[in-house]
């Protein structure tokens, strides 16, 4: 196992490459999921505000 991670002495270079790549890809997906959540929250607030206004106009 340790031998596998040592990669014949090149472990640092290989795992830094693969690690940073994985980190970037995962982070991008997480950031996009968070962005989507924030947008949806904001939109539903706008919607509720609109409904509230139209109710007031009717009464």
């Amino acid at each position: 196992m340790a031998e596998f991670f040592a990669m014949g002495g090149y472990g640092f270079f290989i795992w830094m490459s693969y690690g940073v790549t994985a980190l970037f890809m995962v982070t991008e997906v997480l950031l996009l999921m968070r962005r989507r959540r924030t947008i949806l929250q904001r939109l539903s607030r706008i919607r509720r505000a609109k409904i509230g206004v139209s109710h007031e106009a009717q009464t």
Binding site: M7, Y10, I14, S17, T21
Partner: peptide, 10 residues
């Protein structure tokens, strides 16, 4: 040696 395995993402 093993270092060429970086190629698979590079």
């Amino acid at each position: 040696g093993e270092s060429y395995r970086i190629m698979f993402i590079h």
